[in-house]
């Protein structure tokens, strides 16, 4: 895998250790992710991949007993520094969760939520952003006449695309996705996958997935985690066809996990 220059590094973890109370869940992880790529984190459940993903927007901050050593660098800045405003950070680093979690509000308000909490009151701007975001997430045509309907009336796949639109409305530069398709049917899953492929042009995407075929289909690079270690990180086709580590090989071929 090519070495990235400092400028090319969008996200970076340096010597990262993460603990929950006494338990160490990530051990000395080092990784650098290039802008406008899709990176997949794979590995058996409990390997630390979700925890790792959540360090990039500091979602672990509220977890009791969370402690980390090492640094997370985004666009050249250490995001765990004291002066960093975590709310600002999360606007820049959007997140989509495993289970679709639309707010119990209308479709429109869901997408407009991020703007409203920033104190933006310009109606026209909000409407434009909502439309743009829904179009980007390929949901606009399905909901444009029902914007006032409750978001909970949508199907699971639509809800997840709404959550993506909700995140995009904030115009982040990075999108973290925590198994975004695991709760969806195959058709919805393929829609989400197509979407990820398109979004790559404008965003840097990191996706945690259980599904190795999915990782193979949509990602440029893949990182394999096992019991808190980053075992191997390389171009996706290398990982799937010619892994250097035996543990990766075993996992890819389905011998465990």
């Amino acid at each position: 895998m090519e070495k990235l220059s400092i400028k090319e590094k969008k996200l970076e973890a340096i010597n990262l250790d993460v603990y929950y109370g006494q338990k160490q869940v990530l051990k000395n992880v080092n990784i650098a992710i290039k802008a406008n790529t899709v990176t997949a984190f794979i590995g058996p459940s409990g390997c630390g991949k979700s925890t790792f993903l959540r360090t990039f927007n500091r979602m672990n901050d509220y977890v009791e007993g969370f402690r980390k050593e090492g640094d997370i660098i985004i666009d050249g800045k250490d995001i765990y520094q004291k002066m960093v405003r975590v709310e600002e950070l999360r606007k820049k680093v959007g997140m989509v969760f495993q289970k679709p979690n639309p707010f119990p509000k209308t479709i429109f308000e869901n997408v407009a939520y991020g703007l409203k909490i920033q104190g933006i009151k310009n109606k026209k701007l909000i409407e434009e952003t909502v439309e743009k975001s829904l179009k980007q997430s390929a949901l606009w045509d399905e909901v444009k006449d029902d914007l006032k309907k409750s978001a909970l009336s949508l199907s699971g796949g639509q809800q997840q695309r709404l959550c993506i639109a909700r995140a995009l409305a904030l115009e982040p530069s990075i999108l973290l996705m925590d198994e975004p398709a695991s709760a969806l049917d195959p058709i919805s899953t393929s829609k989400i996958e197509d979407l990820i492929w398109e979004l790559k042009e404008k965003y840097t995407i990191v996706i945690v997935t259980h599904n190795m075929q999915q990782a193979g289909r949509i990602s440029d690079n893949t990182a394999f985690f096992y019991m808190g270690d980053l075992v191997e990180y390389d171009e996706t086709k290398t990982i799937f066809t010619n892994p250097k580590q035996e543990r990766t090989q075993n996992y890819i071929t389905g011998r465990f996990g």
Partner: peptide, 8 residues
């Protein structure tokens, strides 16, 4: 900024 106000 608005973000500061929200924090406060």
């Amino acid at each position: 900024t608005n973000a500061d106000k929200n924090r406060i």
